[in-house]
């Protein structure tokens, strides 16, 4: 099982390596690095097979965070950056991965990563991150067909949830569970804007609502918001959720209720973490691009 240092739901530090693989025996070592706004991940593939990954918190400097993530994934494997033949950078800080051979958008990388994790049946991907939310439709090869994102507004993102959690004094990892400890589902918070929703939430408390009921009401509002984005694309199963909020059942189950489709859950014993979908997709792109280069130079 991957080693996990539980720091905070958004950026749990995580390292995993497949000890059964001797990377020295492989011809193509490639890496994908996803520098997100709150956490950064690096994935290393050996001949296209998942070899190692590391997830870490993004610091104030993107190139440093990219390096930190990659070093974490290489740590203990006696591997150095020269051993990696092709690196693809993705995520919000993708242009800031100085040692990357190429930058690819997180949309394309997420689709490809999810396709690897779930298989060709995955058609709709929802990624709910700390500062954005995106919905991607892809084909059975993981190629993007349709996408929509929102990275302007805090409503519907992890940050928006955090603002409400802070205002209510509830640790963010308790929200999902507590939002179901209610007698009956309350109506969703009516304000979309996080700033106004926060005042509304404190107003509801003053009006005598329990904290759990307010949480339920906010989770429902967030689920509605995200669902409206999903429904713009028309969902087709399999439906897969990645990103920090994937761990918040309070939102996930309410989304499933609204769109009427259950999200695919990875088997309990998996070594995969939905958090690494972007970096994994980037590493797969790196592998394909390297093969293309090798083929081109072999022909030359």
């Amino acid at each position: 099982m991957p080693e996990e240092t539980k720091e905070f739901w958004r950026w749990s530090e995580k390292v995993w390596r497949d000890e059964s693989i001797d990377w020295r025996g492989s011809r193509a070592i490639t890496a994908g690095i996803d520098v997100g706004s709150v956490s950064s991940q690096a994935v290393i593939l050996a001949d296209g097979r998942l070899y190692a990954y590391h997830s870490t918190r993004t610091g104030s400097n993107s190139p440093d965070s990219a390096r930190k993530a990659l070093n974490g994934a290489m740590a203990g494997a006696d591997m150095s950056q020269e051993d990696i033949r092709y690196v693809v950078g993705t995520g919000y800080g993708r242009v800031n991965v100085p040692f990357a051979n190429r930058a690819i958008t997180e949309i394309a990388c997420h689709a490809r990563g999810a396709n690897y994790m779930v298989g060709p049946s995955v058609k709709t991907i929802l990624d709910m991150g700390g500062q954005d939310c995106k919905v991607i439709r892809c084909d059975e090869k993981g190629k993007v067909q349709n996408f929509i994102m929102n990275d302007k507004c805090a409503a519907g993102t992890g940050r928006g949830m955090e603002v409400i959690a802070d205002a209510l004094g509830v640790p963010i990892e308790d929200i999902g569970r507590r939002s179901f400890e209610i007698d009956e589902e309350p109506p969703p918070v009516s304000n979309v804007c996080t700033v106004f929703a926060k005042s509304e939430a404190t107003g509801l408390l003053k009006a005598g609502w329990s904290v759990n009921r307010v949480l339920a009401s906010y989770c429902a509002a967030m689920a509605e918001r995200v669902s409206s984005l999903i429904e713009r694309m028309s969902v087709e199963p399999d439906f897969f959720i990645t990103g920090g909020i994937a761990k918040n059942e309070g939102v996930v189950r309410r989304i499933e209720r609204i769109i009427g489709i259950e999200a695919v859950r990875l088997p309990a014993d998996t070594v995969l973490d939905p958090q690494i979908a972007g970096a994994l997709g980037a590493a797969l792109f790196a592998h394909a691009l390297l093969k293309k280069e090798q083929k081109a130079s072999a022909q030359a």
Partner: peptide, 16 residues
Amino acid sequence: MIANYGYQDGSGEYYI
């Protein structure tokens, strides 16, 4: 590919 650029905020949805 159908690419949607833009956002939704409290005031509405703005996608091209």
